[in-house]
Computed example of a mutant assay.
Amino acid sequence: MIFTADMVKALPEGVPSTLLRGRYIAPDGTPLVGKVSFAAPSVLTLPGSDVISTTAATVTLDETGAFEVRLIATDAPGMSPAKWTYQVTEKFKGVPPRIFHVLLPASADPVQIADIAPISPYAGIYMPVTGPQGEKGEPGTPGEVTLAQLDALEARVAPRPQEWTQAAPSTEWTIPHSLPYRPLVSLYDTSGREIGGLVDYPSPTTVTARFAYAETGSAVLH
């Protein structure tokens, strides 16, 4: 069967799944406006089921900044590929897009995205709202952290966008990157105007962009 984002709430019987919930607000409590998408591998094979071809499942935040979506669990026995993660893309009004990866085991159903999303320790202009608080643990040993350590942690959990320039006109740009995930790509001409192109990912560290006419400009990888 073919499984698309529009069928997220009606998964085939027997397919392990996890209910994911979340809510996003600004520091002053204002609900954010926007969408969150969850991209799995292009083809998943489940034992005892047909091949399931997936597109990214996209949810729109409601008036309180919340969403709820049921997704295929990432740890179904015998699934091929056996080890994979969802690529999560957050796109909110007035906020730079953010991309990260998460696991959704069936045993964790339901899951709050605030409990699994990487959060910058000292930067950012919005926050996911956590679920019910658990029991208080034992106090830890006080420690010290330097600004350099915070910068290193920030770069690891929320990599900064990378920019690449195409100086010579070409109908195909080959763009290397060092981001630990498949990036979101924005393409611009030399005047800074966003342009359209066919984006592909031939390798984990390379992106290509193809155009109908030879173009010069730049690419920003988020």
Rank of each mutant, 00 (worst) to 15 (best):
A106G: 08
A106V: 06
A106E: 14
A106T: 06
A106Y: 06
A106P: 03
A106F: 05
A106C: 06
S107G: 03
S107A: 15
S107H: 09
A108F: 03
D109E: 09
D109A: 05
D109P: 01
D109R: 01
D109V: 11
P110S: 10
P110W: 05
P110H: 02
P110L: 12
P110M: 11
P110N: 06
V111A: 09
V111L: 10
V111T: 13
V111P: 00
V111C: 08
V111W: 01
V111N: 02
Q112V: 13
Q112A: 08
Q112E: 12
Q112D: 13
I113F: 15
I113H: 07
A114L: 09
D115V: 03
D115I: 05
D115C: 02
D115H: 08
I116Q: 02
I116Y: 01
I116G: 03
A117V: 02
A117F: 02
P118G: 06
P118C: 09
I119N: 00
I119P: 01
I119W: 03
S120Y: 07
S120L: 14
S120P: 04
S120Q: 10
S120V: 04
P121Q: 10
P121H: 09
P121G: 00
P121V: 10
Y122I: 13
Y122E: 15
Y122H: 11
Y122M: 08
Y122V: 14
G124M: 06
G124W: 14
I125A: 12
I125H: 05
I125K: 06
I125T: 10
I125D: 09
I125E: 11
M127G: 01
M127P: 00
P128W: 06
P128R: 06
V129G: 08
V129Q: 11
T130Q: 13
G131I: 10
G131D: 11
G131V: 12
G131T: 08
G131W: 13
G131L: 12
P132R: 03
P132K: 09
P132V: 15
Q133S: 10
Q133P: 00
Q133F: 15
Q133E: 15
G134Q: 11
G134R: 07
G134H: 08
G134A: 10
E135D: 13
E135W: 04
E135M: 01
K136H: 15
K136C: 14
K136T: 14
K136I: 15
